[in-house]
């Protein structure tokens, strides 16, 4: 044992260094967030609760019943049913349910939707006491959007998974390519937000 080692051993040098560090840390600011009182804004693009974008023109959802989202959903938790209307023979969306308890929040449904009808909002606190509350029917999905929109401070909203950056857009649908920010508050419609998908008219 050299003298240096001996001194280290006797005077607990390395332990003292560690203690000095912890002592220093006592005088730095705390990094812990006191959650319910102290909140952080979710970062844009966070994948949270689902919602149907409420079209500012029609006041309804934009879904064209293409079934892409339910096909691609990895946990198969989207149930869609389309039915033929007696009077004019056109199809309408009879049921659109998302079972959020089984959802893994991958955002695939948002990405494949050709008309950007679905969105995973930045809302993440929606725990409930019953299963039914987290079983999103079509009305609930629209209500989720309203609730989300009401909380936002800005006028328009664009989800980054509608048209991810850095991808080749030539294979996307025209609607997706031209999708701009949507209006959060009903009222004066901007030209890009007021588009109605052309495919919607097909019988």
């Amino acid at each position: 044992m050299t003298l240096k080692q001996f001194i280290k051993r006797i005077f607990l040098i390395e332990i003292m260094q560690g203690m000095a560090l912890t002592l220093k840390m006592m005088f730095t600011h705390a990094v812990t967030r006191q959650f319910p009182e102290e909140r952080r804004d979710p970062i844009p693009g966070f994948r949270g609760r689902h919602a149907f974008v409420r079209d500012s023109k029609t006041g309804k959802e934009k879904c064209i019943m293409c079934m892409k989202c339910s096909t691609v959903c990895p946990s198969q938790c989207i149930y869609i049913s389309k039915q033929k209307r007696e009077e004019d023979g056109k199809f309408y969306l009879a049921q659109f349910d998302i079972e959020a308890l089984r959802c893994i929040f991958c955002g695939y449904c948002v990405e494949v939707c050709p008309v950007c009808a679905l969105v995973l909002t930045e809302e993440f606190e929606y725990s409930a006491y019953t299963k039914e509350e987290i079983y999103f029917t079509r009305e609930k999905l629209l209500a989720n959007w309203d609730e989300f929109a009401a909380k936002q401070k800005v006028e328009t909203y664009f989800n980054k998974f509608w048209r991810p950056e850095g991808l080749d857009t030539s294979k996307m649908t025209k609607f997706k390519r031209e999708q701009g920010p949507v209006l959060l508050k009903p009222g004066a419609a901007t030209p890009e937000a007021a588009q109605v998908p052309a495919e919607k008219e097909t019988a």
Binding site: P42, I43, G45, F46, R47, I104, F105, C106, G107, E111, L120, K160, F161, P164, E165, G166, L167
Partner: peptide, 25 residues
């Protein structure tokens, strides 16, 4: 984790790469 949230919208289970690249820039 905050950086990952900024990147792909999830903190733990990212689902970020795709076959043939990544999901978003």
């Amino acid at each position: 984790l905050d950086l990952f949230e900024m990147l792909c919208g999830a903190r733990l289970l990212h689902i970020y790469p795709r076959i043939g690249g990544v999901r978003c820039d």
